[in-house]
Simulated assay, not measured.
Amino acid sequence: MATHRRPRQPRLARATLTAAAATAVALGAAAAAQASPADPAVASHPSEQEVKQQVDELYAQAETATERYDGTRERVRQLRVEAASLQDQVARGRDALNRMLEDLSEIAGAQYRSGGIAPTMQLMLSSDPDGYLDRATALDRLAAQQADVLHEVATKQRALDQRRAEAAARLADLETARHDLVRDKQDVQRRLGRARALLDTLTGGQRARLTAEDARAARQRVNAATGGVGLSSLPAPDARAATAVAAATGALGSPYFYGAAGPYSFDCSGLMYWAWRQAGVTLPRTSQAQAGAGRRIPLSEARPGDLVIYYGDMHHVGMYVGGGTIIHAPYPGARVRYESARTMPIAAVVRV
C-alpha cells in the first residue's frame, strides 16, 4: 500500500526559511513599536513639563474633591448636633408624657374610689349632704382636669412621635453622610496619590526645580500686579476685615493640607475660615458656600479682606489684600503665599 508523505526538505532550505521568518517577525515588531504611540518605556518617563501639567490637573481635581470633602464633613458635624438635639427632645418629651400619664392615673383612681353609685342616690343616702355636694363639686373639677390632661397627653404624644420621626431621619442622613465622607476622602487621596506617583518619576533635583520655578513665577505675577512697588495701602472696609487680613498674612508660609483649617496648615477655604474666625466671624466651611457669605462686588471695588472665588465650580478661594493681589493656600506641596488676583478665572468677589 502506498504511503502519502511529503518529500523531505533539505536542511539548508529549512534553515533559510526559519531565519527569514525570524527576521520578518523582528522587523514587524520593530515597526509596530515605532508606530505605537503608547510605548510603555516612553510613557513611563514623561518630561518635567509633562509631569507638571499632569500634576497640576490632578491637584485641581483633588482640590475640587477636597471642597466636597470639607462640605460633607461639615454636614456630618451639623447632622450630629441636630440628631443629638432631637434625641434629647425625645427623651425629655417621653419623661413629660410619663409624668402626665401618672397624673391621669391618679385622677382616674380618685374617680373610681368615689364612684359606683348614681350621684342622686349618693345625695339621698348621704348623712352629710353638704359635704357630699362639696365632694361632688371637687369630682367635677377632677373630671374637667382629666379632660384637659387627656387633651394635653394626645398633643404631647403627637409631638413626641414627630420628634422621633425627625430624629430617625437625621440619623439616616448622618449614616449616608458618613459613607459620603469616606468616599470623598478616598477620592482626594486617590488623586493626590497619582500626583505623588508622577512626581516620583522625577529626580529630587527635578522636583526641587519645579517647586522653585513655581514659587518664582508666583512672585513675578505678584510684582506684575503691584507694579513692583509692593501691596497698596488700601484700607480694609472695617476692623473685622483688617483683623482677618492680619491673620491670613500671619499664615504666610504655612503648608497646604487638605481638610485643614489652621492654625498650622490649611486648604484654600480653610485659610479663609480660620482667618475670619480670628475676627469673630464664622464663615461657611467650603469655597462654594463662602461665595454666598456676603455681598457680591466687582473686582475693581475689592478691598482687603474680601473673598475672591475662582473657577466655574467655585472650588478655590483667596483673600484680597490690595494691589491686585490675594493670599491663598495654593495646592498640596505649596505654602500659603501671595498671588495675582487675576491668575485664575474669577467667579465672584464677596464682601463679608
Score class of each variant (00 low, 15 high):
A43E: 10
R75G: 14
V308E: 12
L58K: 07
V188T: 03
A96V: 14
V245S: 03
A224T: 03
A159R: 07
I326R: 04
T155Y: 03
V352E: 05
A172H: 07
Q34D: 08
P330G: 11
L202C: 04
A217V: 01
P330A: 11
R209P: 04
V182H: 10
G28Q: 07
D200Y: 02
P37L: 10
S232C: 01
M1G: 15
R99I: 04
A29L: 13
A218D: 05
A29G: 14
D130W: 07
E74A: 15
Q34C: 04
Y256H: 01
M272H: 01
G115H: 08
R164N: 12
Y59I: 02
A260T: 00
A30K: 03
W276S: 02
D56P: 07
V317L: 10
R75T: 14
A279N: 05
L234M: 06
G259C: 06
R240T: 01
A65S: 14
L199G: 05
S233Y: 00
S36I: 03
Q111R: 14
A91N: 12
A241S: 09
V321L: 10
R158F: 04
G305A: 09
A65T: 11
D180R: 10
D103W: 08
G324D: 08
A208E: 13
R303Y: 08
G205V: 03
S85N: 14
A138R: 15
A84P: 11
M121D: 11
R337C: 06
P263R: 00
V317P: 12
L150Y: 06
V153D: 06
G230T: 02
E63I: 03
L27V: 14
G93C: 08
Y256E: 02
P37D: 06
A341V: 15
E106I: 11
A167S: 15
V317M: 12
D267C: 02
P298W: 11
P37I: 04
E339L: 14
A291D: 15
Q78I: 08
Q53H: 13
R8E: 12
A215E: 07
G115T: 06
P37W: 10
R351D: 07
D39P: 00
R178L: 05
E82H: 12
T176Q: 15
R351S: 09
Y258V: 00
R303Q: 15
R77S: 15
Y338P: 02
L307S: 09
V42C: 00
E67N: 15
A347D: 13
N223L: 03
Q145N: 14
S232M: 04
P10A: 11
D184V: 03
Q288C: 00
Q87S: 14
Y338L: 15
R209V: 00
L299P: 12
D70I: 07
L160E: 09
A20Q: 05
L125V: 06
Q206E: 13
G262F: 02
H316V: 08
C268R: 00
A154N: 11
R94H: 13
Y258W: 05
L133H: 08
R5D: 14
T120F: 09
